[in-house]
Nucleic acid binder design. Structure first.
Length: 173
DNA sequence: CATCAAAAACTCC
DNA sequence: GGAGTTTTTGATG
């Protein structure tokens, strides 16, 4: 660990997730073997001092617990502090995502409306895809306007499973 | 300028 | 009506 994020693996039933922490909190998380197109240079890449090591491991415990809870089909009790880097618009979208309570879904349109830009649905979709912390920030609970699944960075099958585990009944696909 | 994990309007059967 | 296609729309790289 030098001048990059702390990078810690989280083994789960779905595979090994990779969590990355900045000195301010959880910054990114990757699916087991998905797109390597993640960029870390958008966040402040300051060196995480060794002093914060146990802080990070504390976050990591929280993250791991949260992730496993969700994968087990249960609500995450607590989340680690997040340090998701993004534009104002993206932050707004992600903040909105986290308001979606467990087991519920929202459409892209609803989110666009919630952040005061009812017509920015398309952009909301893009912001979802740009979400650096999938699952913890429940981008999988966002679906099309008529209950249909749309896309998912981690693959549609996973999205479907996640939702079913949360007890969401999906429209026939 | 082209793209994107949308949505509504607009075709044509 | 319903299925497919086109058009609009906003942020992003």
């Amino acid at each position: 660990m030098k001048n990059n994020f702390f990078e810690l693996p989280i083994p789960t039933r779905e595979g090994e997730f990779i969590a990355r922490y900045s000195k301010k909190g959880l910054a990114e998380m990757d699916f087991p073997a998905t797109r390597p197109t993640r960029r870390v240079d958008r966040t402040s890449l300051r060196e995480v001092s060794a002093a914060s090591a146990d802080l990070v491991s504390r976050w990591h415990r929280t993250t791991e617990a949260a992730l496993k809870n969700i994968l087990a089909g249960r609500a995450a009790k607590t989340l680690p502090p997040l340090d998701t880097a993004g534009t104002e618009f993206q932050q707004a979208v992600w903040r909105e995502l986290r308001k979606i309570s467990f087991g519920k879904t929202k459409s892209y349109g609803e989110i666009a409306q919630a952040i005061g830009k009812p017509k920015a649905v398309r952009a909301v979709g893009a912001a979802n895809g740009a979400n650096p912390v999938p699952i913890v920030v429940p981008c999988h609970r966002v679906i099309g306007s008529s209950g249909k699944l749309t896309g998912y960075g981690g693959g549609l099958p996973l999205k479907k499973r996640l939702l079913q585990m949360e007890g969401v009944l999906l429209a026939v696909i």
